[in-house]
């Protein structure tokens, strides 16, 4: 659905109308029925103002930085462990059979469900966030790496062997590049999960980060802050995916 963003000006009509309608309802209509309306249903302009305040006092960037750092650490750790593990499973069938059972037992457990045990082991803070992010991304990277190796066409193996490749060269020059597209798919899914789980882990067990920021909005009775936080979280998630897609194109110009 990349087309969602390749828009012509005319296509924005409905979006603009919705925003204008929202502003009118929140400013003039809803307050007539509910005196407390500002604390429940903020107008778009209030969201922009809140964003302006948080940007000028630097708080927004602090929370973004904290969140990004957690994702980068947890996600990198997952990639560093899952890719070699997946490759080893692809190379040795016996090892793979054993590992598959373990993975199949753990995989259906939603990453969110690891948050309480993460909190129990590591307490409130960075480590538990990093832990659940690791868990959230490790399985999709692992399973896609294995699938990538499975998908290497036998004829490419044969072709390399008949051109003089030994086992080691076959691995580096054929299996690895052939599995790479699927590995990148795993990384993209993993990163999307990581970002989603990060928000949950910060909602539940953190005193900083974007997830904490939007939860705090509730305590502060500032719904405009929640809306702003949601939009920023969505935007960063989107940018992260674009980043990986760009990396994908750079890494694999043959696709």
């Amino acid at each position: 659905m990349r087309r969602f963003l390749s828009v012509r000006v005319w296509d924005l009509t409905t979006t603009v109308l919705v925003v204008v309608l929202w502003e009118i309802v929140a400013d003039y209509i809803y307050p007539a029925f509910n005196a407390n309306s500002r604390n429940i249903f903020p107008p778009p302009w209030a969201v922009v103002q809140t964003a302006g305040n948080l940007i000028s006092n630097g708080e927004l960037f602090h929370h973004i930085g904290v969140s990004l750092l957690r994702v980068v650490v947890g996600f990198s750790a997952a990639a560093l462990i899952a890719i070699p593990l997946g490759l080893s499973m692809g190379a040795w069938p016996g090892w793979r059979r054993q590992m598959s059972v373990v993975v199949e037992v753990l995989r259906p457990i939603p990453p969110f469900a690891w948050i309480p045990i993460g909190l129990l082991w590591f307490g409130v803070g960075d480590t538990q966030s990093i832990f659940v992010i690791f868990i959230a991304s490790v399985f999709s990277i692992l399973l896609n790496t294995v699938a990538g190796i499975d998908a290497v066409e036998p004829i490419l193996r044969r072709s390399a062997l008949s051109l003089g490749a030994d086992r080691r060269k076959l691995f580096y020059h054929v299996i690895l590049p052939a599995a790479l597209p699927q590995i990148v798919v795993g990384l993209r899914i993993g990163l999307a999960f990581a970002w989603m789980v990060l928000v949950a882990s910060e909602l539940i067990g953190s005193t900083s980060g974007l997830g904490y920021l939007i939860l705090d909005s509730r305590n502060l009775g500032l719904p405009s802050l929640a809306f702003m936080g949601m939009l920023i979280i969505g935007l960063i998630g989107y940018i992260l995916d674009i980043g990986l897609r760009t990396l994908e194109r750079m890494l694999m110009p043959w696709r």
Binding site: F4, D11, T14, T15, G211, R218
Partner: peptide
């Protein structure tokens, strides 16, 4: 498709859990 696209494009990347605080308020 083209008219709703941008609107949905803005909402789609927001993780569902990020809706929790505002919906708690509602």
């Amino acid at each position: 498709f083209r008219q709703l696209g941008p609107l949905l494009g803005i909402l789609r990347p927001i993780p569902p859990v990020a809706w929790i605080p505002i919906t708690l308020l509602w």
